[in-house]
Structure formats: C-alpha cells, structure tokens
Design a binder for these strands. Structure first.
Lengths: 248, 248
DNA sequence: AGACTGTATGCTGTAGGCAGTTGACGAAAA
DNA sequence: TTTTCGTCAACTGCCTACAGCATACAGTCT
C-alpha cells in the first residue's frame, strides 16, 4: 500500500507549511529592534510599519502583540506600541533568571542523560570551539544557543525549556558583545559541563552551569559599568512611560 | 489654583481606562475553558466565538493569540485554535518549574525583606487562615495566590515575577481541587515561611518554600493517580496533534 | 499677555468582506 | 467492495473601512 508507506515514512520536517505573515513581520520587527533601527522608547505607529513593510495593519498588530508577549515592545491601550527600553536592572534580573533556569536544566539533564544526548552535546561543543578558533563570533553565539537549548531539551521538562527559550532570546540582545570576551573559557566550561552530565552527576552539572552563567552575568555587568559610568548600580527604577497622559 | 489642586489630589486609581475588548474576550474565553464549557482539544472557530460573544472576529483573534501565549490554546496555522489538552506530564513539569521559581523568590525575598513587606505577608496569612476556617475554598485559593505573588514582588526581580505569574495562572487550573485537601497545613507552612523571611534567613526561606510547593505537587500527583489509574506515571509522551487526530 | 476653549488631525480599536486553502463528502472507476 | 478523483462547504488569513479618542494647535476671551 503506497499510502501507508508514505504515512509511515515522512512527517519529521513538517513539510511546506507556508509561514504566516504575522510571524515574518515579527521576525522583521525583531531584527529592526535589535539592529537599533527602531530605538528604545520609540512609538511604533501601525500604519507607518504597515506601509514600510508593504502589508496591512492586521499582521502588524498581531506581530506587535507577539513582541509584547516576549517583552520586546510595551503595549499601551489606546496609545499603541513602544519599543521596550531595557534597563541595566532588568538585564541583571534577566541574567539571574536565566542562571536559575539553566542550572536546574543542567541538573535534570545529568539525571536523565543518554548516550545519544551526550554525543550531540559533544558535537556542538566541537563546532563551537572551531568557531571560536576561526574568530567567527556570530557562529559561536549561534552554536552556544544551540548547546544551551540542547541541554534544556535533555532536561526532559518542556515547560522549563519553553520558559528558558523566551528568556534566552531576550538575553541574546545583550549577549553578543560579551561573547567575544568570553571566548575560549566559555567553551572549556561547556566541556566540563558535558562531562558532568555524562557521568550523571547532577549536583556538579548544576554547579558548573551556575558558575558558567554567573560568569557571563558578571562580565556583562562590569562591561556595563565601563560604558555607562552614570548608572553603575541597578538602583534607580525609572519606569519609562511613553505617552504624557499616562504619566501620573 | 484649582488646577494644581486637582492634579495634586487625584490619580491613584488610574481612572476609567476602557479595558480593550480583546482583554475582556480573553477573560471570557479563559473562564469558559476553566469551567469546562470549552473542552480540551475542541476546535475554536473564530466566527462561532464572535457570534457567541457578540463581537467581531478581530478581538477574538487577538484574544486567542494571547491565550496561545500563555499556553491555554494551541494555534495551528491555517487550522485555527484548539483548546490545549493538559497532560499529567505537563502538569508535573509545570509544578516543578513553579517550585523552582518560588524557591528562588523566597530566597531573594528573605534577602531583601522589609518591615512593610513582612507586615503585608502576615496580613495576607491571617486572611487566608480565616478563609480556611470559614471553609471558603475559593477565597483561600485567591488569598494563596496573592500571598505567593507578594513574595514574588518582594523578591525584587520583576522578570522572575512575570514568569512566575504566567506559570501560576496555569497551575491554578489544577490547583483548586487540591487546595481543599491542603487546608490548614498549607497556611502553617506559610507562617513558617514568613518568619524565615522576616529574619532574613534566605536558605531557610528557600527550603521551606521548596517543601511547601513540593507538597502540593506530590499531593496533586497522588490525586491524579487515584482518578486516572490508567496513567499513574508521567511516562507516555503522546504528542497530540489537533487537526488530524481530532478523529480519534 | 495669559488662559481657556473649539477645532483639526492622527492614531487606535473594531467591524465587515473577500480570496485562498484545507478537509470532507460523494460519485465514478477498478 | 475498495480506491480514487472531483466537487463543495467552511474556515482562516488578510485587507479595507469606519467610529471613537487623544493630542496639538489656533483662535478667542478675560
């Protein structure tokens, strides 16, 4: 039976699903935000974006709401969307939460480790080291994300994985410039992490991951201190409110 | 000057901002889902909902996307929205993540504790105990949520708080029936937790919160085992695919 | 001159409508 | 009887249009 053969074989690469327009708009706007073309605090008029991207307002609206859900833009009812203005305090909190989630994931991954999973991790680690040797920063960052995502997957907790994915995406906003400085050291820590996971040593894996993420966190904070000496400590909690009327 | 008088006085209760329709639709649909009027796996046709609620399709769409973002419905491009079918495995993972986030929040809250914050916690605890004594389950659940939310707030990490809020809302889907059984014990643990926070003992606060959340988690799992003896262990990972599998 | 009010403009929120696609049912052929 | 193809209905995705509100400006009155 030709039919059952097809049904039995295919499926994995969920073939040919035309990507909804709202998601392409989402990606486009996200890139514009990360690139800095749309600057923090800037008001995003739907009509304007619609004309700019050559689509109607509807997909724009939906994309903006997706972006709002992930914290990239702030939605003020009746006033529209504004590019989220990340504060030093928020970045710190984000990195702290990431550390927490990743640590737990490493612990769980060590507990549920499989040969196949460890092999995938080692493969990614090799690729990452190669990228660093070749001075390919973007590649290294990408592989780094994949590796952390894989650890998440191996944790076996899908909910944890989803949450961490959200957080990681936001973290990558600040992460790229830091990656250069971390360089090799980061990947040596990865190797140690994988060893711990392979041995099923949950506590050690968690500890390594915690140190690993805290390293990047502190590196980020120190970098920030150099660049913006005016606000070295995340103390001021200035809520940026865009329209005047919402002010008080 | 009459003007400055007015400006100086009012403001606190952010007067009369007409709630966007999509949010009211969101609430309405959420209630329908939790109530069980919309059953897991059910297909949600936009036109149908629009007519049912007496609004246009647009706010329905936006509400569905909000619901999707929080995991209440699954959105399949080209096929529409389906009420999410929670599995035992997912519930367990959700409760595990909640435990993780709450534990960290308790630790941070203890570190940043203030007299004012502790006072608020104690007030909530009293209200909760009163509700339990009066056999007011719904009230107890509400106060319980407020208390946990307050601990989150006192942690000082807004990102952590947002994530936990998401998770908690989903947890409450299963939580209500369990609350009855937890009863008094839960609130005694709360009291101990607040004491630890008041003393600034981060480790103890974290430990208590961990035990506290794990208690409810295990209670939920054991309850589940009684009701659905066919699936006592969260082992089967059956990925439910909406369009095709609606047949079975 | 300063403050207040009326008007105008731009935006968001919502509605309605059209085209493309998907899935199902039924009819015809093997 | 089973398989396959054609037709049809329903729904989603997207676009356009309108109403309500907020803000900004200008004119007028004190």
């Amino acid at each position: 039976m030709s039919r059952s053969d097809l049904a039995g074989k295919a499926a994995p690469p969920k073939i040919a699903r035309p990507v909804p327009l709202r998601e392409r708009v989402f990606e486009a706007l996200l890139e514009l935000i990360i690139d800095g073309h749309l600057r923090p605090g800037q008001h995003l008029a739907e009509s304007e974006l619609a004309e700019m991207l050559g689509v109607s307002r509807q997909p724009i609206r939906e994309a903006l709401q997706l972006l709002s859900g992930e914290g990239w833009v702030d939605l003020h009812p009746g006033h529209g969307a504004f590019v989220h203005a990340p504060t030093a305090e928020e970045a710190d909190q984000l990195l702290a939460v990431r550390a927490l989630l990743e640590t737990e994931a490493a612990r769980l991954a060590a507990r549920n480790h499989t040969d196949e999973g460890v092999a995938r991790l080692r493969a990614l680690c090799s690729r990452g080291l190669a990228a660093v040797e070749a001075d390919d920063i973007d590649g290294a960052v990408t592989v780094n994300s994949e590796l952390h995502a894989t650890v998440m997957e191996l944790s076996g907790n899908a909910v944890l994985s989803d949450l961490a994915a959200q957080v990681s995406r936001r973290v990558r906003w600040y992460h790229t410039p830091v990656a250069r400085q971390r360089g090799r050291a980061s990947w040596e820590e990865h190797t140690a992490l994988i060893d711990a996971i392979a041995e099923g040593d949950a506590d050690r894996a968690g500890e390594i991951m915690k140190d690993h993420t805290e390293h990047t966190r502190h590196l980020y904070l120190s970098r920030l201190g150099e660049e913006e000496p005016s606000e070295p400590l995340p103390s001021k909690r200035r809520k940026r409110r865009a329209p005047a009327s919402l002010g008080n």
